[in-house]
Design a protein around this nucleic acid. Structure first.
Length: 334
DNA sequence: CAAGAGTCCGTGGGGTTTTC
DNA sequence: GAAAACCCCACGGACTCTTG
C-alpha cells in the first residue's frame, strides 16, 4: 500500500528539501570550503527562488571571489521583487553591527568562513563539536544550528564522525509532534532516545501498518534521525487531533537490547569542581573507564546502558494502548 | 537548574483601504 | 475595477525572565 493522505505531504516536503540541498552541494566546486560556503549561504534563506536568483545574477556562488557588496545588492533587489526568506526557517538577524537582517546574515556567513568552519567540519571527531561551536554564534539557536548542521551533513564531509548516526537535536515542533504521538509530553531526557528508537524500528512500524517503507534519495536510504525529526515537525503542523501510536512492547525491548554499547557503570560521584553528577562508565571494547555527566548517560540510556529499567520506564511513559482507528494518522512518521 | 512564560523580531497570509 | 499599499494577526525561533 503506498503512502497516502497527509503523511505523503510530509515526505514530499522532505524530499524537496533534500533534493534542493543536494543540488546546491553538487553544483560547483567540490572543495570542502566552497561546498560549505554554498550550503551556509543557501541555509540563510532555505529558499530555492533566492538561490536561483543569485545564480542568475552572479553565477554559482564562490567563496574565493565573494564580495559582500555584490551579494547584498543582488539580494536586496530580490527582496524588493519578492520574498527571499522562508517563514519557518528564518534566522534572527544576530548581532553583527548592521541594521536589518540581510547584512547581518551575510556578516555571520563571513564570520563562519573566516573562523574556519570548513576546517572544523573536516577535522571534527564528533558532530556535536561542530554543533557546540556553531551555537556560540549570535543568531544561531538550537533549532537553526541543527538545520544548518543537517545541510552540512548532506555534503558528506561529516561522514567520518562517530556520532553521525546518533546526534540529533529536537526543535519545538518535533517535541510537540512527539506529544501528539504519545498523548503526553515525554520527559525531556526520554525525547531523544525515543526519536532514536523510532528511527531504528521504522521498518517494523511500516510492516505492522501495512505500508511500503518510506525511503529517501536516489539510494533509497531509510529515514535518518533528521528525517524523523523533520517528520515530527510536519506532524505538529498538520494534525488537529491528538493520536497515539500503537506500539509493541516486546519489540521495543529488542530494539533497546540491540544497541547496547556501554559495558557497565561502576561508580557515581559528584564532580568536585563542577558539582555535576557523573558516572564511571566502562565501554564495550575498551579497558579504561571514563567519567561521564549523568545527563548525557541518562539521555543515551535507551541506547547504551544495559538496564532494562530504562526501557520499562519508557514503556510506561508511552501509553502504548493501540488507539488510532485510521492508520493514515501515523503515516507521517512511519 | 530546568521548565515555562513572556518578549522581540520578521515572515506570510488574509482582508481592507487607497490609489490610479 | 484592478493593482498597490496598508493593517492585523498568527506563527516560529531566539532570548530573557520567572518560578518552583
Amino acid at each position: 500500500m503506498p503512502i497516502r493522505d497527509k503523511g505523503q505531504h510530509a515526505f514530499y516536503i522532505l524530499l524537496l528539501d533534500v533534493d534542493v540541498v543536494q543540488w546546491v552541494i553538487r553544483t560547483g566546486s567540490q572543495d570542502p570550503e566552497e561546498m560549505i560556503f554554498r550550503v551556509v549561504l543557501f541555509d540563510l534563506f532555505t529558499r530555492q527562488d533566492t538561490w536561483t536568483h543569485i545564480i542568475e545574477k552572479i553565477g554559482h556562488p564562490v567563496w574565493a571571489t565573494y564580495d559582500r557588496d555584490v551579494y547584498l545588492q543582488v539580494l536586496k533587489e530580490a527582496k524588493a521583487a519578492g520574498k527571499i526568506y522562508t517563514g519557518s526557517f528564518q534566522k534572527p538577524s544576530g548581532k553583527y553591527g548592521f541594521k536589518g537582517v540581510l547584512p547581518n546574515h551575510l556578516a555571520m556567513l563571513e564570520q563562519l568562513m573566516e573562523d574556519d568552519l570548513p576546517g572544523r567540519v573536516v577535522n571534527a571527531k564528533r558532530i556535536s563539536e561542530v554543533y557546540d561551536w556553531l551555537r556560540s554564534f549570535s543568531g544561531l539557536g538550537p533549532f537553526n544550528t541543527w538545520q544548518m548542521l543537517q545541510n552540512i551533513v548532506y555534503t558528506g564531509l561529516l561522514a567520518h564522525c562517530e556520532d553521525l548516526d546518533s546526534f540529533v537535536v529536537l526543535g519545538c515542533g518535533a517535541v510537540k509532534g512527539l506529544q501528539r504521538c504519545f498523548t503526553t509530553r515525554l520527559n525531556t531526557s526520554m525525547q531523544k532516545p525515543v526519536v532514536r528508537w523510532m528511527q531504528k524500528t521504522q521498518r517494523l512500524h511500516f510492516e505492522r501498518l501495512g505500508y511500503t517503507p518510506a525511503t529517501l534519495g536516489p539510494k533509497k536510504h531509510e529515514l535518518q534521525l533528521a528525517d524523523i525529526e523533520h517528520g515530527l515537525c510536519e506532524l505538529d503542523k498538520g494534525r488537529p487531533e491528538p493520536f497515539v501510536l500503537p506500539i509493541n512492547f516486546e519489540s521495543t525491548l529488542e530494539a533497546v537490547k540491540e544497541v547496547w554499547e556501554v559495558s557497565h557503570i561502576a561508580n557515581q560521584r559528584r564532580n568536585p569542581e563542577s558539582g555535576v553528577m557523573e558516572y564511571e562508565v566502562y565501554w564495550r571494547g575498551y579497558d579504561e573507564p571514563s567519567w561521564e555527566p549523568a545527563s548525557v548517560i541518562e539521555e543515551d540510556a535507551m541506547e547504551s546502558v544495559p538496564n532494562v529499567r530504562n526501557a520499562v520506564t519508557l514503556a510506561h511513559q508511552m501509553h502504548w494502548h493501540a488507539v488510532t482507528s485510521d492508520p493514515t494518522h501515523v503515516v507521517a512518521l512511519f
